[in-house]
């Protein structure tokens, strides 16, 4: 306790303790797993095409948000306690919210564009679409989120998602849709969920519930 106290390091240590529970990893892992599980469930659900993937996808997304919200509220906060960080962190969180709103609007536009016939996706090379989706739509936003959250593991997850889209292009001619999507995203999402579970178990051991 008597050694030199670095206030910046102290703040960083306190801040990063919120990622010790692995709930962010579980949340992101389930969302990525969703890319693989939704088409898998779609094979067994008797619904019209498009809806047989969208409905399970929405259910999995709701499940991921519940894991995050309930996990933080009932597991993390009673164990590590509650903290409000200073103005610099608050400003970063505000910028993150603006960025996420922009990404959300951009994604909605990208979803609507094919319906308006303004862009003919069939004229664009599939590899370019994959790179746009993987790097532009997921890796880059995830890296920006990692920067604003100061969450180092998220950089690795961001690049693994981009890598998944890249690999997908090569697997499609071999395995065909939806098998290649199911396999690649189940593997990557599954690994992230396992990392999250590992952190979660370590967290439960490190911070037992005080009486």
């Amino acid at each position: 306790m008597t050694e030199n106290i670095d206030l910046k390091a102290l703040e960083k240590k306190a801040y990063r303790s919120i990622f010790e529970d692995g709930i962010w990893d579980l949340f992101l892992g389930i969302l990525i797993l969703n890319f693989g599980l939704a088409p898998l469930f779609g094979l067994f659900i008797n619904l019209p095409e498009f809806w047989n993937v969208i409905i399970p996808s929405l259910i999995i997304c709701i499940f991921a948000f519940l894991v995050f919200y309930l996990g933080k509220k009932y597991i993390t906060i009673p164990r590590i306690g509650f903290v409000k960080f200073g103005p610099i962190r608050k400003s970063k969180q505000f910028k993150l919210k603006i960025f996420l709103a922009v990404v959300f609007i951009a994604n909605v536009i990208l979803l609507i564009l094919p319906l308006t016939d303004l862009i003919n996706y069939s004229q664009i090379q599939p590899l370019i679409i994959s790179l746009m989706l993987g790097l532009g739509g997921l890796t880059l936003p995830f890296c920006v989120v990692a920067y604003f959250l100061d969450f180092t593991r998220l950089y690795y997850y961001a690049f693994s998602i981009g890598f998944a889209f890249f690999i997908l292009e090569f697997l499609t001619p071999i395995l065909g849709y939806p098998l290649e999507t199911i396999i690649i995203f189940s593997i990557i999402g599954g690994i992230i969920v396992l990392i999250g579970l590992n952190y979660f178990i370590r967290f439960l051991k490190k911070y037992p519930l005080s009486k």
């Binding site: 106290i5 206030l7 910046k8 102290l10 703040e11 240590k13 306190a14 303790s17 009673p78 164990r79 590590i80 306690g81 509650f82 903290v83 409000k84 960080f85 200073g86 103005p87 911070y207 005080s210």
Partner: peptide, 18 residues
């Protein structure tokens, strides 16, 4: 004091763990 200086506020449990 150092912990409370770098955050806006914290509860007893958080400070005890840190």
């Amino acid at each position: 004091m150092s912990y409370l200086y770098v955050v806006e506020s914290a509860d007893f449990v958080f400070l005890r763990n840190q």
